[in-house]
Each structure stands twice: as structure tokens, then as C-alpha cells.
């Protein structure tokens, strides 16, 4: 067999839906279960890795349930798979259960809302490289924007379970309260520190909320909230690590803050993808070449989606 890859089995697998819960106006949490080879592959899923879901044959919701701004998009027959990262992985009785947090934004996620318990979906994954934990860190700072919360929830769980020496703190941002992808978001676990999100609290991770319009928590961009917090932080930059996922503009700001304060920083990037497996070369991320002014394009799917913030060239 002519084969130079050592990669594990990446499917395609069939996963069976166990729940598809609406958790906000446009937010859902899809829970999927894998058995046998799929369970084995996804059991080792790292926070930040992703998978490609084939939703082309998933039906649309009835027209009365299609939001007005998506009526035109819903008409489009989709072709390509869609990449999603995961907010949780549970291994139980030889089965692997995974959660995907998603927001309804177009024809594919609209179709996704009609998946219900017992349905199956074809998945290629796990794909890409997840977040990694360098030695010697004492504090992990998780900065999320909108839907970017998903993989950082998974990371919070892994940090708590496997990295006892590291304290994690989450900074969750969105445009408005309604766009925070959390359930029971403002349960007042710790009013003194701002707002605390149950999703992070269950891993013992403190969280601060920021909304651009001030409808919840800190009024302003989450990066401002984060910056202010850093100004009061007790630890040296080398003891901390920043993990971030969200809109690219926010990631650029996070990278800038990290650089200024000399804090290691990993960013989960997003690109339009066709294959997700390193073939199509669509999802290029411009990266600096060490010690030179030249840049190269790395592939978000295979080289990322998590990158060291120092590598990324952000378009202004």
C-alpha cells in the first residue's frame, strides 16, 4: 500500500444524534454518539480539533420556521461538508459522545436544526491539530467570542481534569447577551467578579462576560475586558497562556495583547474549507516564516486550526 500517512482512522463515520437542543434564539447544542471505529477515533479528540459534517441530505425546517433573513439562503442546495469543532467529549461504555455548539447562519446550519434523536449524520474526523499545553504554565486564560466558546469549553474541561497545576479563567464575549451561546448564562454564582457562566463553572473555571452593547457583564469588547483584567493580574507573562477562538478581528486583538505582554498565545482560526483534509488548499492562513520577512500560506485544516499567535499575519 502506497501510503505515507500515519494518521489514525478519520472516517467517514456515521454518528447517531442523541439530542439537538435549542439553547438560545439561534443557538443549538447537537449531541452525537459514535460506536466502534468512530468511537475509537473520537475518544481521543483534542480540544480545538474539528470534523466535517455532510448535511446535504438533511432536510430544511418547514418554511414557517425559517428566519426571514435566511429565506433566500435556504433555497440553495448545499454541496460541501461543513466544519465544526466540539464543546465536549464523553467516553462511556465503549461509546463516544460529542457535543457541537452551533449558530444558525446559513443553509447548512438551518438544515442542522432538523436533526433529531436517532437520525444519523456522516462525519469525517477528527481533523487538524487542537490546543496544546506547554509545560510550566500556572494560568490559562480562555478568551472567547460568540460561537468560539465551544472548543474552549472543551479545553476548560481538559485543563481541569488533566492539568491540576493550571488555573483556568474564561472571558466570554459577544455582541449582545442574546449572542452568548450559553444556557442559564447569568446564574449569579459570583456577582462580585461579574457574571459567571454555568458551563465553565461546572469545571471550576471562573468566567467573565463582556458584551459590546453592555446588555450583560462588561460593557465593551471582550478584549478590553481581558486587557483590563490583565492589568490587575498578579502573575508574570511567562506563567500564563492565552487560548482564544472567535471572530478574526478579535483574535488579532488578542494576539496584539499577548505580544505586548509577552504571553504565549494559541488561536483557533477559521477559514472557508472544501475538503478539510489537506487536499483542496482552500483554507490558507498567511503565516510568518521564522527569522524572515517572507510569509507562507499554511492550511487551516491540516496545519491548524490552532496556531501559535506569533505565526499569524492578520489582514488589517
Amino acid at each position: 500500500m502506497a501510503k505515507n500517512h500515519s494518521a489514525a482512522n478519520r472516517g467517514p463515520f456515521n454518528a447517531v444524534i442523541s439530542a439537538n437542543k435549542q439553547i438560545g434564539q439561534r443557538f443549538y447544542r447537537l449531541s452525537l454518539g459514535f460506536e466502534s471505529a468512530g468511537a475509537k477515533a473520537f475518544a481521543k479528540l483534542k480540544p480545538g480539533q474539528f470534523a466535517q459534517l455532510d448535511l446535504a441530505d438533511t432536510p430544511l425546517p418547514p418554511s414557517k420556521d425559517i428566519p426571514e433573513d435566511l429565506v433566500d439562503a435556504a433555497r440553495r442546495k448545499i454541496l460541501l461538508r461543513r466544519p465544526f469543532s466540539f464543546s465536549d467529549v464523553i467516553n462511556k461504555d465503549r461509546k463516544t459522545l460529542v457535543d457541537i455548539l452551533y449558530r444558525v447562519v446559513g443553509p447548512a446550519t438551518l438544515r442542522m436544526t432538523t436533526l433529531s434523536a436517532g437520525d444519523s449524520v456522516n462525519i469525517i474526523g477528527p481533523l487538524g491539530n487542537g490546543f496544546w499545553v506547554p509545560r510550566g504554565k500556572k494560568q490559562a486564560l480562555l478568551v472567547t467570542g460568540g460561537m468560539g466558546a465551544g472548543p474552549l469549553l472543551h479545553l476548560a474541561k481538559v485543563l481541569t481534569a488533566d492539568h491540576h497545576g493550571i488555573e483556568a479563567i474564561a472571558f466570554a464575549g459577544a455582541k449582545t447577551e442574546k449572542e452568548l451561546p450559553f444556557e442559564g448564562q447569568l446564574d449569579e454564582i459570583s456577582q462580585e467578579l461579574g457574571f459567571s457562566l454555568a458551563e465553565f463553572a461546572r469545571y471550576g473555571v471562573e468566567s467573565l462576560v463582556a458584551t459590546d452593547d453592555g446588555s450583560a457583564g462588561f460593557a465593551g469588547p471582550v478584549t478590553d475586558c481581558f486587557s483590563e483584567w490583565l492589568g490587575r493580574a498578579g502573575l508574570a507573562g511567562k506563567d500564563m497562556i492565552i487560548y482564544s477562538c472567535g471572530p478574526e478581528q478579535m483574535l488579532a486583538k488578542v494576539a496584539e495583547i499577548a505580544e505586548k505582554r509577552n504571553i504565549d498565545c494559541q488561536l483557533s482560526m477559521e477559514r472557508m474549507m472544501a475538503c478539510g483534509i489537506g487536499i483542496c488548499q482552500s483554507c490558507a492562513v498567511e503565516c510568518k516564516v521564522n527569522g524572515s520577512s517572507e510569509t507562507v500560506y499554511k492550511m487551516c485544516c491540516e496545519d491548524g486550526p490552532v496556531f501559535d499567535a506569533k505565526e499569524i499575519v492578520f489582514s488589517s
Partner: peptide, 14 residues
């Protein structure tokens, strides 16, 4: 190196 991104976009059945 290839072109800048976005390099792809989905269309109706294509």
C-alpha cells in the same frame, strides 16, 4: 504560494 483568501465559495450545487 497561491492566491489570498477566500479561495473558495459554495454555490448552488457547485
Amino acid at each position: 504560494k497561491g492566491n489570498a483568501t477566500p479561495r473558495i465559495v459554495e454555490t448552488d450545487s457547485g
